[in-house]
Structures are given as structure tokens and as C-alpha cells.
Design a binder for these strands. Structure first.
Length: 289
DNA sequence: AGAGGCGAAGAGGTTACGTCA
DNA sequence: TCTGACGTAACCTCTTCGCCT
């Protein structure tokens, strides 16, 4: 299980509060410009040349051998039950080159749900058609990719979370999968990554909200204290305007009570300490009087 | 045996790009 | 040359469904 970095998505969020400086950088890697729908992070669909060095190769050819004709060549413990990714010799080769080959000869790989098979046959899209012979096979069997296949796909995904057509072909051939399967795997992988990231962000934002709420509560309390002081020690404020005009000097970060200031407090955390000095001073005055 | 989770895959929509009249 | 219609490809999101625990 690979852990995704925070920059797998195309969002950038920055939050800052006195007690919290939060930056969520959800931008995709710089090599993966976001150009999809505006509602969500997405990845360019025209990324030719970005995948040139990506496929994970093995010294001895494909990293895994699930496509052997002999059953003993299949990864036994890695695959539970039938190896749906096994391709009869020559079966995938007939389809090499195009996703249209998704009409796999591999009957166990049938991806046609009974409900939708008819739709597919009626309106085959560019790469999602289903052959009649596959339809005739009946219900689809859907099994997991092997661990080795998933590992190779994960490695590829780490390097790039989008697929170049050539690399899709290469991966498909390497893993004895159909290009459509590789494509779908990457789509689902991106979706899982995004979902995971969304949940993480939600937690972070939740904590941020709690922190800000607490900070707000604290500041409200300070305001109450200041107002109480103003009532009890009016002479302390005679030379100044209302407390709300207190501002923070951007250079020294001290409280300024200049009447010319706009009252904008830039850094409330720095504001807090001088305020406390004011408070202690006021308390001293009150106790002495 | 049934429920729920997970993942593979389908369907429909969006966007970007190329082509052509 | 510009422009709008059209087709295509890649992607995203939602959903379905089969397998596994």
C-alpha cells in the first residue's frame, strides 16, 4: 500500500491563524498540469511525451508471468481462484495496438454486466465496445489483479499518475492485461487517491476549525476583559480612542493606540502579549488607586 | 448464509484538441 | 484567416457488480 503525497491533487489551500499556520498543497506534480474539469483536480489528457521512461521493466522481461500458457507458470499464492488476467497465447496479441481490443478473447475477463451488455452493444464508444462473442460468454467474472500486477501498476503510478498511450500499451503487454484494464486501474487509482486525500484534508480542516474556534473564544474573553477594564479604569483610556482602534505596528509588532490607525490587527498572536501588558498595567493602576 | 468492504469495470458527462466546410 | 460544428481521446465521477473476509 503506497502512501500518496499531499501533492497528488490539484488543490492548494492556505490557512493561517495565530496558533496555526496551515498549508494544504494539493497541487499535482509540476509535470502533471491540471486541466480537467474545474470542479476537481484533474490531469491533462494530452500529455504526450511525459511517460517515456516509465514502465517498470525486469531484467528478464515482464516482471510477472501470469500469461503463461502452462498453469504451473501462474503465480499460485498470489492469485486466489481463477487467474482472470491470464490471456491465452496470442489472444492479447490480436488486440495489440488499440483499446478497441477490449473485446478480449479472454472469456474469464469479460467485463460485461448483464444489465449493461446490451447498452454496450448498442452504443459502443471509442474504446469500450464489447464483442458479441464476449457477450455470448454470459456473466462476467471479475477478479482482482495479482499482487505483482498491482505492484507494477503502483510503481508506474508513483512515477506518473496518468498514462501515455504508448506506456499503457507497454504496461498492458508487460502485465498481460488489456490496455483498457490498465486505463481503468489508473482511473480508479486516481479516484482512490483523491478520496483518501479528501478525507485527510477534511480531518485537517476540522482540526483547524477547532483551533480557530478556541482562538476566537480566547479573543472574545480578552475583549470582555478589556471592556471591563475600560469601565473600571476610565482614565487609562482617556487619551485614546476605543479599544477597537488598537492596532499592531507592523515593524515592532507592538500595540499601537494611535487614533490614526485603522484598527486592523495583523497578527493577533503578537497582539496578545502586549495586550496582557496593558492588562497587567491596568490592574496595577486599579489596585494602587 | 448474509453483510459489508474493496476493487474492477461500465456509463455518462466534461474538456481539449484537431479537422473541415 | 476566422469561426462554428463535429469527431475523437482522455479524464472524472458515479454506479454496478463480483469476490473476499
Amino acid at each position: 500500500m503506497m502512501m500518496m503525497g499531499k501533492d497528488d491533487l490539484g488543490l492548494s489551500l492556505s490557512l493561517s491563524s495565530p496558533n496555526l499556520n496551515l498549508q494544504l498543497n494539493l497541487m499535482p506534480p509540476t509535470s502533471s498540469p491540471a486541466s480537467g474539469p474545474s470542479t476537481s483536480p484533474s490531469f491533462s489528457c494530452h500529455q504526450k511525451g511525459r511517460w517515456n521512461d516509465l514502465v517498470v521493466h525486469s531484467e528478464n522481461g515482464p516482471v510477472l508471468d501470469v500469461g503463461g500458457a502452462a498453469s504451473e507458470s501462474r503465480p499460485g499464492p498470489l492469485l486466489r481462484g481463477v487467474d482472470v488476467n491470464w490471456t491465452p497465447p496470442g489472444g492479447e496479441e490480436r488486440n495489440s495496438g488499440e483499446d478497441a481490443g477490449a473485446s478480449s478473447q479472454n472469456s474469464t475477463l469479460s467485463s460485461v454486466s448483464g444489465k449493461r451488455a446490451g447498452q454496450d452493444l448498442q452504443v459502443p464508444t471509442s474504446s469500450r465496445g464489447v464483442s458479441d462473442e464476449e457477450d455470448a460468454e454470459g456473466s462476467r467474472k471479475k477478479l482482482r489483479l495479482s499482487k505483482d500486477q498491482s505492484a507494477v501498476l503502483e510503481e508506474s503510478f508513483k512515477a506518473h499518475n496518468t498514462l501515455d498511450p504508448k506506456q499503457k500499451q507497454a504496461l498492458a503487454k508487460q502485465l498481460n492485461l488489456r490496455p483498457r484494464q490498465v486505463e481503468v486501474w489508473f482511473q480508479n487509482r486516481r479516484a482512490r487517491t483523491k478520496l483518501k486525500q479528501t478525507e485527510t484534508d477534511r480531518e485537517v480542516l476540522k482540526r483547524c476549525c477547532e483551533t480557530l474556534t478556541e482562538e476566537n473564544r480566547r479573543l472574545q474573553k480578552e475583549v470582555q476583559e478589556l471592556r471591563g477594564l475600560k469601565l473600571s479604569v476610565p482614565q487609562l483610556y482617556m487619551h485614546t480612542t476605543a479599544p477597537t482602534t488598537l492596532s499592531l505596528c507592523p515593524s515592532c509588532e507592538r500595540v499601537s493606540n494611535s487614533a490614526t490607525t485603522t484598527g486592523v490587527i495583523h497578527r493577533s498572536r503578537s497582539f496578545s502579549m502586549p495586550i496582557r501588558r496593558v492588562l497587567s498595567s491596568a490592574h496595577a493602576n486599579r489596585s494602587s488607586s
